[in-house]
């Protein structure tokens, strides 16, 4: 890893942190993507406002890439995509948070609950990679 790459990682992380800070400082809301997105799926229309705006903003860079025909590839066979998606959806719903809600926001809030959640899903994912590598 060279200095330019490290700079990019830190700048990207800082942008994410700024997003989390902004949503708290102005809206008083936690930038947990799984929760915000799920509310869009199930919530009543009156409560959608800021969540819709956030998810639209989140998707804008992707839509810009779509216009320029530079899709961000997620490669995998159909069973892998379906199983992984189902588990990520169900798991984040049960745990009430994902990498953003627990991993960034909860940690920034010094929440012990979020620390435990983050260590658990990260440790599990590492174990899965270890097993997948051994197979």
């Amino acid at each position: 890893m060279n200095m330019i790459e490290i700079g990019r990682l830190l700048a990207g992380g800082a942008a994410i942190g700024a997003a989390v800070a902004l949503l708290m400082l102005v809206n008083g809301r936690v930038a947990g993507i799984s929760g915000i997105y799920r509310q869009l799926l199930t919530g009543r229309f009156g409560q959608l406002g800021w969540r819709l705006a956030f998810v639209l903003g989140l998707c804008l860079p992707g839509l810009w890439l779509l216009l320029h025909q530079r899709a961000l590839p997620v490669a995998g066979g159909m069973p892998l995509l379906l199983i992984s998606g189902l588990l990520v959806g169900a798991g984040t719903q049960l745990a009430a948070g994902c990498t953003s809600g627990h991993g960034v926001c909860g940690m920034a809030n010094l929440s012990q609950r979020s620390l435990v959640a983050t260590l658990t899903f990260m440790g599990t994912a590492m174990l899965v990679r270890f097993v997948a590598g051994a197979l």
Partner: peptide, 24 residues
């Protein structure tokens, strides 16, 4: 929930935020 999420995340390497951005 965290274990279930971790299995799904570990299998593919995609969590909700990046998934939505890539889908867009």
């Amino acid at each position: 929930g965290s274990v279930v999420f971790g299995i799904g995340w570990g299998l593919l390497g995609v969590c909700p935020g990046p998934g939505l951005v890539a889908a867009a």
